[in-house]
């Protein structure tokens, strides 16, 4: 057994060395188009543009960032179909496009139709309420919902809406779930009193620090960084989570050397908080998280399966 492990380690070490040397060799054969699955402006778009800028200065490549927003990243994933596989076309989106976005089949794609490259960070997803409501914990929220009117709750993506629904179902309360446009739209609606609560993915951090918003639940599989005591979804009996990664992916059958080189160079940039991109991730998301290779593939395969279960559970 020990020998087998050692062999495995040796093999693993070898394969890392092999991809590393493969990566060293790769340079793009021409100018690169980097799609960004978000509308221009805002933190997610800046993230992509800053990474592109840093790649250009570090390696002297020519990169043109291009916004390809829509349908939580699915429009960009479709753009990848039939794109050149030599590493000159790839894009930054969210993992939800690959799991939930493709799970019900209407997209006509599966995660196998793209090549995952590397994640940049895990979105800090929290269930947030305005501080003016006076709710300090999720229990307060549930108590208020039981006592009065059904709660008006926002959701920025369909996956989040499903999880919100299951959370309410588990707590035995009624919620009117409303789709809102992005983190900004959610915050505006919360501040204006049009909504009572909702899951937000990072845009709320400043409001929490200023004491205007309160985080009640962590949507991630780990505790929140600003409110570590808030319960996880699993603690509330919801067997799903909202681990949404910002991640790069390319077209199907992308050149392995390109994939390795991009994964390596992008993770170096995002993990280095002296770069503008790294600093932005530190400020907005509490730091970068670069997962690539088999670990990333495994995450995507698992969350694709889980997304199908989520859809099933939420439609019952």
């Amino acid at each position: 057994m020990k020998k087998f492990l050692a062999l495995g380690a040796l093999a693993l070490g070898y394969s890392i060395a092999a991809t590393a040397s493969l990566a060293e060799d790769w340079t793009p054969p021409g100018p690169i188009t980097m799609h960004i699955a978000f509308p221009p402006g805002g933190g997610s778009d800046s993230q992509g543009r800053l990474i592109a800028e840093e790649l250009e200065t570090r390696y002297g490549w020519t990169i043109t960032p291009q916004n390809t927003p829509g349908k939580a990243g699915l429009i960009m994933a479709k753009e990848m179909q039939g794109a050149p596989t030599d590493g000159t076309v790839f894009g930054l989106g969210i993992s939800e496009a690959l799991d939930y976005g493709m799970a019900d089949g209407t997209a006509g794609m599966t995660p196998d139709d793209v090549t995952p490259i590397v994640t940049t960070t895990l979105a800090e997803v929290a269930f947030v309420v305005p501080a003016s409501k006076g709710w300090k914990t999720f229990d307060d929220f549930v108590a208020a919902a039981m006592a009065g009117e059904p709660m008006r709750v926002g959701a920025i993506t369909p996956k989040i809406a499903d999880v919100t629904y299951l959370m309410g179902k588990e707590a035995g309360i009624e919620m009117n779930i409303t789709m809102v446009q992005g983190g900004r739209g959610m915050l505006n609606a919360l501040y204006a009193g049009d909504l009572d609560a909702g899951f937000v993915a990072g845009a709320h951090s400043r409001g929490v620090e200023a004491g205007e918003l309160v985080e009640l639940v962590s949507g991630m599989s780990r505790p929140l960084s600003l409110t570590p005591d808030a319960p996880l979804l699993a603690d509330l009996g919801v067997p799903f989570n909202l681990d949404i990664y910002f991640m790069y992916f390319g077209p199907k059958d992308m050149d392995g050397a390109a994939q390795a080189k991009l994964a390596q160079s992008i993770s170096e940039i995002v993990l280095d908080d002296t770069t503008k991109a790294g600093a932005l991730l530190e400020a907005n998301f509490g730091g970068a998280e670069a997962i690539s290779g088999e670990a990333l593939q495994a995450f995507i395969d698992a969350s694709f399966v889980s997304a199908k279960d989520l859809m099933q559970a939420a439609s019952e």
Partner: peptide, 18 residues
């Protein structure tokens, strides 16, 4: 297009803490 500014009523929030 630029982002960071959405014209509309919420712009005029004279918030004191932030």
């Amino acid at each position: 297009s630029i982002g960071g500014f959405t014209p509309g009523p919420s712009v005029f929030r004279f918030s004191e803490s932030v």
